[in-house]
Simulated scan of single mutants.
Amino acid sequence: MHNTLYYTVLKYMPNIIRMESINVGLAVHYPKEKYSHFFKMTNINKIKAFDDEYNPDFFNMVMDSLSYELDYKPNTSSNINSDESRFLDITESCFLEKRTNYLANEFRFDKIQRLHTSINDYKNDIKQLIYIP
């Protein structure tokens, strides 16, 4: 099995005509460890400043939906998505693409990127991706 970490950035584009966007999340997938997670932006004030018509209910609904679709950690008691049948494709390299390609309009994922890593380093690599300015 390969040592590739897949990731993609979620952009929020409230006005498609202006084509301005802000990064609001990061989806990561490491097939070797059956790991997938969606990290959402926690600085709501930054989003409110970016979009004067920000709707917190709609925004939170989309974020919760993405967490439901992407958050998977095997064999942990804290795993709220314990339905194994929803994640039968977790070891496939196309997992992240299949789970993120349906969004359009205000929310869009960037092209999926790849990072060579190892079992010992992938968690640290994810932390570094989260904190990219």
Rank of each mutant, 00 (worst) to 15 (best):
I44D: 00
D71E: 09
M61L: 07
S85A: 14
Y54L: 12
E97C: 06
G25Q: 03
I44T: 13
H2V: 12
S21Y: 01
N43K: 12
T100P: 04
S21W: 04
Y35G: 00
N45V: 02
L96P: 07
N101E: 05
E69H: 05
K111F: 12
D64C: 08
E106K: 15
K48R: 13
P56R: 09
E53C: 13
R86K: 12
R18P: 00
P56Y: 10
I90L: 11
Y68M: 04
E92P: 04
L70D: 11
E53M: 11
F59R: 03
I44M: 05
Y35M: 13
K40W: 06
E106G: 02
E20I: 01
K73T: 13
P14T: 02
I112N: 15
F107C: 04
D83I: 07
E92M: 12
F109T: 15
T4M: 15
D89C: 10
L10I: 03
N105Y: 14
K111Y: 08
R114Y: 00
T91S: 15
L26F: 08
F87M: 14
N81L: 03
F109L: 13
K73E: 09
D83L: 11
S85C: 03
F109E: 13
N23G: 01
D89S: 06
V9D: 04
K48D: 10
N45S: 11
E33C: 14
T91H: 08
S65I: 01
N75H: 01
F38T: 05
E33G: 08
K32M: 13
K32Y: 14
E97W: 14
M1I: 07
D52L: 11
N79E: 13
D51N: 02
K11Y: 00
M63D: 00
N60T: 10
R114T: 15
L66M: 15
D52P: 01
N43F: 10
Y72F: 13
F107P: 02
V24L: 00
Y12A: 07
T42D: 05
V62D: 00
K73V: 11
T8C: 14
C94D: 10
D51A: 02
Q113V: 05
Y35Q: 02
T8F: 02
T91N: 05
F107K: 06
M13V: 12
D89N: 11
L103D: 12
F39L: 04
V62M: 13
S78I: 09
M13E: 08
E53L: 10
L66G: 03
K34C: 08
R99Y: 08
S85E: 13
E69T: 03
I90V: 15
P31M: 15
